[in-house]
Nucleic acid binder design. Structure first.
Lengths: 238, 238
DNA sequence: CCAATAGTGTCTATCAGACATTATCTA
DNA sequence: TAGATAATGTCTGATAGACACTATTGG
């Protein structure tokens, strides 16, 4: 049971510790497609490959792992995402060529326009359409991480309107529905989608309209409850 | 961006690394109550306090963090739980007096009888009724972790029969329902509970009966699909 | 007028809640 | 017989699916 750890005040030396990193899967919706933010690695290992924004926890300056992940994300986009939460942690001997390493992964959502100004000015940070990203040879096990994050978002699209945080502050119901359809992977009945949102009172009608080829669409804003609301009954998965 | 990390082959020295531990919240159902396994700490820090079974990742022998958590759990109970999955990770400067530390937390379920033989022989490992455990002064931030794990199980009780893994191999529907009621915190309509389980074909009727004061109850066994099945419609939360 | 997009009316099917009723055991 | 626990019958209400319909814009 207590075989090794004798260590006093700072027993770090008794054990060889794994490398600890954080990674974030930041999604957005833009031009009718779901995109994920990737960063081209400039340092060892896996130099040159595209991977998730993240990095090593700095215990001198970071107060917790969430701060680390946010800090790394802000370095790449210059803004804090309105939605950000922990997905999973992956730790093993083989995922990093440097040896045993653990990464704590976060999922985040942001409006495309809210970080495009910064992203578009640098060449090593870029949005990729999700299917395209999954076809790439990503660094480390980042492809699997993106898959997990998408699956989590897919589930959420079935029982919440959390994906709305990937849209601009004001958005149309058609935009929100299409994003859900992308995540779920099938079309949704317009009536069902709108009915449940209206009944749960999750959105605020801004009164404004936006036109795009047909009848102008009402613009809505997320209420704060949208972050936590779960419908009792899900949309059908398949 | 890439300010520090210069490190070569084994760049561990460039950064001061946080302590990495795992902890498990193991639940069971026994004598009509929900119990959690706690361990009395025999080593520094927090010696003497009760806390979650867990420990430091040993990168020499563990192939991944899940193995570490399972290994630690088996050390305390001598058996592997039939359900085991990751809950969350917590990492900050203040949770451990030794300094910056990260713990990867798992939730597990096991039948009480399947580990009672070992648990009852040692004095530093013990089942506590959950409410009682939450009133205790647990080590580190373990009380908060138990709260998170319970909340996760509560959600699962609403949309699955996963809690069934905390029961013996053969169990009655009344037992399963009562466990769900403990998790959800309110009573469930018997008809609703049974109907949905029957329709989804999640259980196997063993043909055996068990009697306890009234009409004998049929004994069921979990099908493997019970691990992953999610009802489209949840039970009502409140 | 037509094309395109937004939004509504309304019927049906499913399934959880509620609660009464029947079934099977012991004492 | 009564008491206890298990199991079922059946009605109601809520809500998602399906799909036709109306509404509002531009050309």
């Amino acid at each position: 049971m207590s075989k090794k750890r004798k260590a006093g005040k700072r027993g770090r030396k008794a054990f060889s510790l794994p490398l600890l990193t954080v990674d974030s899967v930041l999604f957005t919706y833009h031009e009718k497609s779901l995109k994920v933010l990737l960063v081209q690695r400039s340092s060892e290992p896996e130099t040159g490959k595209w991977g998730l924004p993240g990095g090593i926890v700095d215990i001198e300056t970071d107060k917790d792992i969430e701060s680390t992940a946010l800090r790394k994300l802000v370095e790449k986009t210059s803004v804090e995402p309105p939605f950000f939460d922990q997905l999973e942690s992956i730790g093993n001997q083989t995922r990093d060529p440097r040896g045993w390493s653990v990464t704590v992964v976060y999922t985040a959502l942001i409006a495309h326009q809210n970080c495009e100004q910064h992203v578009s000015t640098v060449s090593d940070v870029q949005w990729f359409e999700i299917e395209e990203a999954l076809k790439m040879k990503l660094a480390f096990d980042h492809r699997n991480i993106v898959l997990s994050a998408r699956e989590r978002m897919r589930q959420r699209a079935l029982y919440s309107i959390l994906p709305g945080y990937a849209l601009a502050e004001k958005f149309t119901l058609s935009e929100l529905q299409h994003l859900h359809e992308l995540l779920i992977g099938k079309s949704i009945q317009k009536r069902s989608f709108r009915r449940r949102i209206e009944q749960a009172e999750l959105l605020v009608d801004t009164g404004e309209k936006r036109q795009e080829g047909g009848r102008p669409a009402a613009l809505y804003r997320l209420k704060n409850v949208s972050m936590t609301h779960r419908f009792v009954r899900n949309l059908e998965a398949s």
